[in-house]
């Protein structure tokens, strides 16, 4: 199989869908001539022209509302946020209108729209540009929230998101854009609401998403090679709805669970995963469930502090060994 970067996969997904359906357009800051701040929309302006690949002013509140309005009347906008940090300016339109209109209108009006862009913590950009918004959006009924890890997930999930008639939050990660993964030339469909097992194991479950999968894979290799612990990795993919049956099945097998995310601990995705486990599979637990999150602090600039704030393989290995009774 050919290897493709996550960046290229996202680009290809948009291009293929835009060729298929003329109601799809891309709107965001510098998505056209500059081809995106992270070069995700390379070549799209050339292929689709200025009417469909639109450089917006720096006006998140306004252009997000514009996108939501366009989606109500039958278009299928892809709104690119230069980063999800900037979507805070626009979150009213996402939460109060995009997510709620189908419900408030009794099924009358739909908002088929994708909000995408990098989310989470890149490196060295300090607190206002380093934050995971997964749990913010996962809290809201009426939204779908997905976070791909591989190129294949990025491509097929984005295509599914664009075709879906609900508003979809599509969380990318700056540090994954250049990573290359093998990508199958064609798969039939990628469900928007299913987790996948990245690696099977018997002793402990690592439940995570986005760049957390990378940490989990490295952790599992170390646990197996150096400590004789067999870790199962769940890539959640969908954070709303969350695929609880995959989590429960795994905990029934392993009896131990660690959630891993770049978000803060309070009311985070980890809180939700552990609630699911406690409510639905408490009897299967052999150890206290654990969360590995960002520290409960804004992300700092100094590299040593930043590292201390983030989930790391060392932290996960240590916690896994504790849960397995190897260390205290």
């Amino acid at each position: 199989m050919i290897k493709t970067s996550v960046r290229q996969a996202i680009r290809d997904a948009m291009a293929e869908e835009m060729r298929r359906d003329s109601s799809i357009f891309l709107l965001g800051e510098d998505v056209g001539r500059f081809e995106g701040a992270y070069k995700v929309s390379r070549g799209l302006l050339r292929e689709f022209g200025e009417s469909r690949v639109i450089d917006s002013p720096i006006t998140e509140h306004g252009f997000t509302g514009l996108g939501v309005g366009a989606s109500m009347s039958g278009l299928r906008p892809i709104i690119e946020f230069m980063t999800f940090n900037f979507a805070m300016q626009a979150i009213d339109h996402i939460v109060n209108t995009a997510a709620k209109t189908l419900f408030m209108s009794g099924g009358n009006v739909r908002c088929p729209i994708v909000f995408r862009g990098p989310n989470g913590v890149p490196r060295g950009v300090a607190a206002q540009h380093s934050q995971c918004f997964a749990s913010w959006y996962a809290h809201v009924p009426g939204l779908r929230v997905v976070a791909p890890y591989t190129s294949s997930e990025a491509k097929w999930l984005l295509k599914a998101a664009i075709r879906n008639d609900s508003p979809v939050i599509f969380l990318e990660h700056e540090l994954l854009y250049s990573k290359e993964f093998p990508i199958p030339p064609k798969i039939e469909v990628m469900p928007l609401d299913q987790a996948c097992i990245v690696r099977e194991g018997t002793d402990i479950t690592l439940a995570t998403f986005s760049i957390g999968v990378e940490h989990a894979v490295k952790t599992a290799e170390i646990l197996q090679a150096e400590h004789g612990i067999s870790a199962e990795i769940i890539n959640l993919i969908s954070l709303r709805p969350i695929d609880s049956s995959t989590i429960i099945k795994s905990i029934q097998k392993t009896g131990r669970i660690i959630s891993i995310e770049e978000g803060w601990p309070v009311c985070g995705i980890g809180s939700e995963i552990i609630s699911i486990v406690c409510e639905k599979a408490f009897g299967y637990l052999d150890a206290d469930p654990a969360r590995i999150c960002s520290a409960d602090a804004p992300i700092p600039y100094a590299p040593n502090l930043e590292k201390a704030a983030l989930p790391t393989v060392e932290k996960i290995v240590r916690t896994a060994r504790k849960l397995c009774g190897q260390i205290r």
Partner: peptide
């Protein structure tokens, strides 16, 4: 903003 999107459409 939403009405502006309707005009855009």
């Amino acid at each position: 903003s939403i009405g502006t999107g309707l005009a855009f459409a």
